[in-house]
Design a protein around this nucleic acid. Structure first.
Lengths: 109, 109
DNA sequence: ACTGTATATATCACGACGTGATATAGTCAT
DNA sequence: ATGACTATATCACGTCGTGATATATACAGT
């Protein structure tokens, strides 16, 4: 699938998708992602099993991640080049969001 | 409603909700929000009519926004104190996201 | 007067998403 | 052998944003 179609589907990216793709810069399996995201967010974000396996299947279908290795009780994924391009777009959007957040922060005191 | 319940419901906040609340630091009506958000995001984000009026009704029900004035063809809203507290929480989350984005950005080149 | 564009709100069906429950099963320490 | 942890899969549920459709006013150009 082309990057334009993928972008339309995945941007704005859900927090779940964002942290899964961040995690997959290193090949990991589902459960490993859950633990890594938990660590990255200091316990704030604990992905449900339905969320992780559902999302991984969807992302694999859209070819933004791919199977890196298939061990007996672990399917290990990694991000693809299309996935990386998607993340560059998403990070650009996050920067815009961050700039606006800082600009208006004082209004919420 | 208490801030804990509101936070559970609204965080992570959708991009739509975030920009609507940013806009409502100044009292505005629905159509005015659409135009303001379009401006803030340099044309990137154009909220659909279903999105804006649906979300405004929901937010009013949850008391994170309130009716500021009711003119003949315009209902003008503004953010409440609970809404502001919610935004402080959301901005904290956005900063975390931003930090992680910058930390991993190099991996997507 | 007619036409087109912009302003302004409301409602509905649709597809997509995250959650939590349920189920299943292997591993490892006590 | 019991419990805790690792690991994956599936399903119903409620929520969300979108785009279409509908309605109506206002204003400028021709």
């Amino acid at each position: 699938m082309k990057i334009e179609k993928i972008s339309k589907k995945y941007i704005p990216m859900t927090e779940t998708a964002f942290y899964i793709l961040l995690s997959l810069t290193i090949p990991r399996h589902g459960y490993g992602i859950i633990k890594h995201v938990e660590e990255l967010t200091v316990g704030r974000l604990v992905l449900g099993s339905g969320t992780i396996y559902g999302t991984l299947t969807k992302m694999q279908r859209d070819e933004i991640i791919t199977v890196y290795a298939d061990e007996k009780r672990k399917t290990i994924y990694e991000i693809t080049d299309v996935g990386k391009e998607l993340m560059r777009h998403e990070i650009t959007r996050l920067k815009e969001l961050h700039v606006n957040a800082l600009m208006y922060e004082g209004e919420f005191k």
